[in-house]
Amino acid sequence: MLEIRDLHASVNTNEILNGINLSVNAGEVHAIMGPNGSGKSTLAQVLAGRNSYEVTSGQVLFDGKNLFEMEPEERAREGLFLAFQYPVEIPGVSNTYFLKSALNAIRKHKGLDELDAVDFLKLVKQKMKLVEMDESLLNRPVNEGFSGGEKKRNEIFHMAVLDPRLSILDETDSGLDIDALRVVADGINKLKRKENATIVVTHYQRLLNYIVPDVVHVLVDGQIVKSGGKDLALELEAKGYDWLKSSSPVSA
């Protein structure tokens, strides 16, 4: 589904991604862990199409299509979803209006009719339950004044409504309390299907107890220095990252 080959990206001539190789197949869950500043969010944002990062070399194929030839909205319409580490506040735009515009843009791309207000509301109600989101957050401006945890939950709520094929969750667990973490993880698991894939970026092994990864990757200084099974997360939890910092990169 996703094929990243020797990806290099920089910001202001500062190279942040130093040759990433990663392939994710339908049905899989991949976890990316790594120290602060190692480039995890950069990778996520580059995949979503943030243009403040310059892709200097490498290739990314999404279902065989060159991702870098697509605008951010085209990627989303093709089924890519990024849950932001820092969800953006949009004053003046209600959460529902925003979601409806997004969903209808995606449906239009798929050749489906736009959802009318009634059907949209039905869908929204159902998905809200999935992540146990408070209804009052629906009519408020997107993320404005949301607590840290509410913002993260709202990201997963958006994901539930938009039903992407590849979800990249950038530290969705940070900021969630213990109960919320379980609810959100449950929601993510319920949305899991064999045609879909998920990349979770996290610092904590705890999340991976709920969302069990098929592969765990360690990103250090813009490179994947180690990949392994779910036990790797436990090992990282115990040993930290220092022991990996001198390892040479591996291909996933």
Binding site: P87, I90, F98, L162
Partner: peptide, 15 residues
Amino acid sequence: EQVFYLRSRGIGNAE
């Protein structure tokens, strides 16, 4: 950042 957030959810640039 706001423009990108909207686009990353499928909303076209102009919209």
